[in-house]
Every structure is written in C-alpha cells, then in structure tokens.
C-alpha cells in the first residue's frame, strides 16, 4: 500500500495503482502542499499505528532521508539508509534459538562502496530508504484496479511551527541522467566558465544524435552554479552510462561511488595526481579550457566516442 500526502493528490492515486500499489491511502490537505517533516512524521506514525505494516519504505531523497529516521525514532524501529537492494529473507538467531521469518534484508554499500552490508530490523515496521536510481519503476498497467482510501489524520498546530518562506526549483528530476549513453560531468575545476564548455560538449554530442547529458560533482552544486539534481555521487545520483567523461573532477570517493559502474570512464584534469585518474580508463592531463574546445570541434566533425548515433 502507498501513502500520498499533499494538495490535490487524489487524482494521482490511480497512477500509483497502475504502477503496482494495491491500496493507495491519501491525505488531502492544502497546508501540506509543501513537504514538512513534522506533520508528515505525525501522519505516517498515525497510519503505522492504525495499519501495523511490517515494512515502511521511503525514497532516499532529501525528504525521505530525514523523514524516515524521524519516524523510525518515534516508532522505536530504527532505519536502514540508502539501500540498493531489498529482499525478503530470514534470520537465524542462535542465541534465541528462533528463525525470524519473513524479515526484510536491506542491502547498502558502505565504506565508500567497497563493501555491501545487509542490515536487518527487528522492530516493526522495518524502515528503509531506497537510493534514487537503483530501483526500476514498476511497469505501468493501465486500468489496473486497486483500493483508494482517504485518511484523516489528527494534525497538531505545533507541527506547523516551521515556515517555508520560499521554494526554488530548477529543472527538476532529470530522469535523463539515468538513461544517457554518455555523460559529460564537470567538477570544481570547470567552474571558471560556469560549466559552459561542459554543456557545449554535451550539446554537440546531442546534435550528432548521441543520447548525451551533462552532470556535475558536488562542489559545482556547492558553488551554486547548478542544481542538486545534476549532482552525481553518493549523495546525488548513481549513474551508469556507456561513457562517462569526468572533467575537472578530482575524484572524491563519494563521487566515484556515483559513477564507477559506468562502462568507460575518461578523465580530463590538469592535476596529474587527481584521484579520478585511478578510477578512469583513459585520461588526459591538461586544462579543460584547452582540451574541451578541441574535443568539441572533433565531435562537430563527426566523432562520437564510438557510440552509434540514433537516427
């Protein structure tokens, strides 16, 4: 079952059912148009009390990553963060001489992705957050039937003490990053021209019929040059294009975590000891302001990094 909260959300319930929900519970409230951690925590906890689910899953977004632990503390159940795998299994407790089954096995990478840990929760609901980009959206079955249930929570005025003064959103979700065959990604070293050359290279590739996109590493977002949605890395998106071109990216372990599954990694950096070079297949030591214009010219005259152009 799925819980959806907000303003005018009832119309979305059918979409959720068509994507696989058997029941969609919705909370319709004008004051909840914008996500707020306190009332959302309260609503979720009230629903959990009423329905007693074994498992509660959230997306590991900036809201899910704060909402889940706040709920987990209120329900005394703890949370597993940023999972890349979720399975139902069992746990053999030698101490208690029992087998916990079924139990949620939450898998998450740790130590800069060098290890994969399986984490189990023993208090219901077992709460986990799922990392963006690692789970496929279930296929939509148009006309699928399910239950739609309105839910009227008790809302406490005290939960509205925090005021959202304003919300600024840029280009939004950027699903493209997950689908692109080639990603040109700019790091701190490419901020001098505000990623101008990065974008130009991606555009040039697009004009050649390549499914290319541009992205960035964390410092670029830090400097306010582009929005969080473009950020690749452990706290941003995990991408796996056929070709990943890292330009001016030093290669912090958190960034590597977000791109290391890419097919071929090309690194361009003027700092020869940048650790990105330890995580790339091919590289150029040089200034991006010299190299990229040259690369863009090559692309304009037909070079596509060996990728087939879409007709």
């Amino acid at each position: 079952m799925t819980l959806i909260i907000g303003k005018k959300v009832e119309s979305l319930t059918q979409t959720l059912i068509e994507h696989g929900s058997d029941e969609v519970i919705f909370v319709e409230n004008d004051r909840l148009e914008e996500y707020l951690v306190l009332p959302f925590t309260s609503i979720f906890t009230q629903l959990i009390k009423e329905r007693n689910p074994e498992i509660a899953l959230f997306a590991a977004t900036t809201s899910g990553r704060e909402l889940a632990p706040r709920i987990g503390m209120r329900t005394s159940s703890g949370v597993t963060a940023d999972c890349t795998g979720l399975e139902i299994g069992e746990y053999i407790s030698k101490k208690e001489q029992v087998i916990y089954t079924p139990i949620l096995e939450s898998r998450r990478p740790t130590y800069g992705e060098s290890k994969l840990a399986t984490i189990l929760g023993f208090v219901c609901p077992q709460v986990s957050t799922a990392r963006a980009g690692t789970f496929e959206v279930p296929e939509r079955v148009v006309g699928r039937k399910g239950i739609t249930t309105p839910f009227k929570p008790n809302l406490d005025e005290k939960d509205f003490v925090v005021e959202v003064i304003k919300t600024v959103r840029g280009e939004g979700g950027l699903q493209n990053l997950f689908d692109a065959d080639l990603i040109v990604s700019g790091g701190r070293g490419t901020t001098t021209d505000s990623l101008g050359l990065i974008k130009q290279l991606a555009e040039a590739l697009k004009s050649q019929g390549i499914n290319a996109e541009w992205a960035c590493s964390r410092p670029v977002v830090d400097e306010g040059i582009t929005e969080y949605a473009r950020q690749v890395g452990q706290t941003g998106k995990t991408v796996r294009p056929k070709i990943y071109i890292a330009v001016g990216i030093s290669g912090a372990i958190q960034h590597i975590a977000g791109m290391k599954e890419s097919g071929t990694v090309i690194a361009i950096n003027q700092n020869p000891k940048a650790s990105i070079f330890n995580n790339a297949d091919f590289g150029i030591i040089g200034n991006y302001q010299d190299i990229l214009p040259e690369l863009i010219e090559r692309v304009k005259s037909g070079y596509t990094f060996g990728l087939e152009a879409k007709k």
């Binding site: 003027q270 700092n271 020869p272 000891k273 200034n287 010299d290």
Partner: peptide, 22 residues
Amino acid sequence: SEVYELHTNKAGEKEIRVHAEN
C-alpha cells in the same frame, strides 16, 4: 614536484602554470 607546467597554446604562446598544490 611538478609545480610548474609550461603550457603552449595553439597559437604557440608559452606560459607557466603553477600547481602549487604539488
């Protein structure tokens, strides 16, 4: 320690780039 890099641009102009971090 590779602090100084002589860079020649396309026009053949030379300049020294400093990588003080090395």
